[in-house]
Simulated scan of single mutants.
Amino acid sequence: MKKAVILLSGGLDSTTCMSVAHQEGYELYPISFNYGQRHQRELESAKAVASFYRVKEHRIFEIDYVGGSALTDPSISVPAYQEAEGIPVTYVPARNILFLSYALGYAEVLGAEAIFIGVSSIDYSGYPDCRPEFIEAFQQVVKVGTKAGVDGKAMTIRTPLIQLSKAATIQLAMANGAPLHLTTSCYQGGEKACGICDSCTLRLKGFKEAGLVDPIPYETFSV
């Protein structure tokens, strides 16, 4: 059976990616990361999603971040959502570069054909490592920087959500039977989602535009 490594945070987007890979018949090898994020709750969601799909193995990697983000430095507050230009304080330096590097090494060991990552260039917070040009550049790294790539068997970086709005992502997840009730997206990491951070707001707007009700609990609704 063909194999795929899935970057699984436990959030809506990565879980939708998992559902796409599952629908396409891949044997699923999700990986998650404990990088000192304040929203540690997402790791429990990732475990629950992996269990739902009865995966053969779910690996959680430890990365010792030095801060530099509201998600990894407790002295930097997570702001409420606001429409503004520029890269927000919730950007984690080089996060997707690191995550994809781990995924790439693991995929090469497994002999996997694909790596799935839930980046979107439509409904996102302005992170530079969620753009098509970043994915294209990393695909070139796969081609020239791995044995598989040199041998003409480079793994494909799959981004099924990159041109989808959050509403379209949610509709895809529902069509695939993805367990969105097990996911979390909140940057605060509380028992209930805060409802006002960037991630919560984009998620709630997506459900509203899709004409659906978000199955997870919130402290408040900003949309």
Rank of each mutant, 00 (worst) to 15 (best):
A173S: 13
Q37F: 12
A84V: 14
S9Y: 02
I60R: 06
C200G: 10
T220E: 08
S125H: 06
N34A: 09
I31F: 08
G118P: 00
Q40H: 14
C186L: 11
V89M: 04
T184N: 10
E42G: 11
M18L: 13
Y29E: 07
I170F: 13
V109D: 04
A154W: 08
R131V: 03
T183L: 07
T169A: 06
L71V: 14
G86R: 03
Y35V: 10
L164P: 08
G152T: 12
I196F: 14
P93V: 04
A175L: 12
A70E: 01
I97L: 10
S222V: 04
I117N: 07
Q23W: 04
F33G: 04
K56A: 15
S14K: 00
R158E: 13
M1L: 08
F134D: 00
L8Q: 10
Y187V: 12
F138A: 03
V141L: 11
N96P: 02
A103Q: 03
I6R: 04
G25H: 09
H39R: 10
R95D: 02
A173V: 08
F221H: 14
P128Q: 05
G36V: 07
T159Y: 01
E108N: 05
R158D: 01
R38H: 09
N96I: 00
Y102P: 05
S165V: 12
G149L: 09
A168C: 04
G189Q: 04
S121Q: 02
L8H: 14
C130S: 11
K166C: 05
L180C: 06
P93H: 06
T16W: 11
P217W: 15
L180R: 09
A4E: 00
Q82E: 12
R54L: 06
Y187Q: 07
E57W: 07
C186Q: 09
M18S: 13
E133F: 07
G190Q: 12
I196P: 00
E191I: 15
A167P: 07
L71Y: 09
S14W: 03
L12W: 03
E85D: 11
T72L: 11
A48F: 09
T90Q: 08
I60W: 05
M155L: 11
K192I: 08
L100D: 00
Y53P: 13
E57P: 03
E191H: 11
S165Q: 10
H181S: 14
A175C: 04
F33T: 08
G10Q: 02
S77L: 11
D13R: 05
V5E: 06
S51K: 15
G111S: 07
G195W: 10
G86Y: 03
K3A: 03
A80W: 04
C17M: 06
G118A: 02
S9C: 09
L12A: 03
G189E: 05
G67H: 13
I162E: 02
M1F: 06
G67R: 13
G126K: 00
L182V: 14
F138N: 02
Q23Y: 05
E83Y: 09
G105K: 01
P88G: 03
I216Q: 09
L12F: 10
L7W: 01
E133C: 05
I157G: 01
K205D: 01
E83Q: 09
R203T: 12
H39Y: 11
E191V: 15
H39N: 10
C17P: 04
L100Q: 00
H181M: 12
P179L: 13
L204E: 11
A21R: 06
L100V: 07
L12H: 01
G11D: 06
V141M: 10
F221G: 08
R131S: 01
I162A: 06
